[in-house]
Computed example of a mutant assay.
Amino acid sequence: MTPLDVPQPLPPAPQAIGPDLAALIACPRCDAVYRAVQPGPGERAVCARCNTVLIAPRRRAGQQLIAVAVAVVVLVVAATLAPFLAIEVAGRSNASSVLDAALAFAAAGPVAMLALAVAALIVFIPVLRALLVIYVLGPVVLDRPPAPHAAAAFRLSEELRPWSMAEIFVIGCAIALVKIADLAQVHFGPAFWMFAALVVLVVVQDGFMCRYSVWKSLER
């Protein structure tokens, strides 16, 4: 690990630090301010106060992120349509997909809004984030000028990150299955395993993403 320079006290006058703002970076967790130093290949720049990774450039990270984003889109679309769970009790069985569960509450008044919110958090937002990553990084990987409004698209993708809750959905389903395991036989459908793979891909995507490098690429 290669930490950034130790934080230096900033001059009180804003105009004194104006020309150097592009060379500064703030820790998103503890707000410590550093002078950015580009790490070498395989190295990382971390916050000396809270050890948050600030800069972690990777070779061919753009291609890897685009590949992961495409996989996320494919998995979410397929998992939405494929059976998620099948429940069998007293000789009767029923299989349901995530889309079926959302449509079941479509005409239920206030509950319909809850169904739409759940569908947005576990389906639409992950897909939108993946599409925004492809839109932003595609021209960068091809050594072309950034796409129109690429900075706004990447900022929106980052703002939506806390609201992408596919992994929360999987954990919630696992807890629910534990509670009903004694009442019925539960069988995992293809969509369940797709969501499990989706959780892994989201973690990989966040691990590969060096947001400092992306912003610098968009500035150039």
Rank of each mutant, 00 (worst) to 15 (best):
52 T>W: 09
195 F>V: 06
199 V>A: 13
108 A>S: 14
145 P>F: 02
162 P>H: 08
200 V>S: 15
178 V>W: 12
21 L>F: 12
44 R>H: 08
23 A>N: 11
107 A>R: 10
219 E>Q: 13
198 L>M: 15
5 D>I: 09
215 W>D: 12
218 L>T: 03
108 A>E: 12
95 A>E: 14
135 Y>T: 02
82 A>E: 08
171 I>W: 10
115 A>W: 00
8 Q>V: 11
49 R>F: 03
216 K>C: 08
175 I>M: 11
47 C>E: 06
95 A>P: 00
205 Q>N: 05
182 D>G: 12
68 V>L: 09
63 Q>A: 10
162 P>A: 06
145 P>I: 03
129 R>S: 04
104 A>E: 08
58 R>N: 05
180 I>F: 09
43 E>A: 13
179 K>E: 04
19 P>M: 01
132 L>A: 00
206 D>P: 02
115 A>F: 05
160 L>T: 14
81 L>M: 05
194 M>W: 08
96 S>H: 14
31 D>Q: 13
114 L>S: 13
127 V>E: 05
138 G>P: 07
78 A>E: 04
106 A>F: 10
170 V>H: 00
27 C>K: 03
38 Q>E: 15
140 V>M: 13
132 L>N: 05
180 I>Q: 08
186 V>H: 03
57 P>R: 06
96 S>L: 15
214 V>F: 01
43 E>R: 04
5 D>R: 11
27 C>F: 03
77 V>P: 01
45 A>V: 07
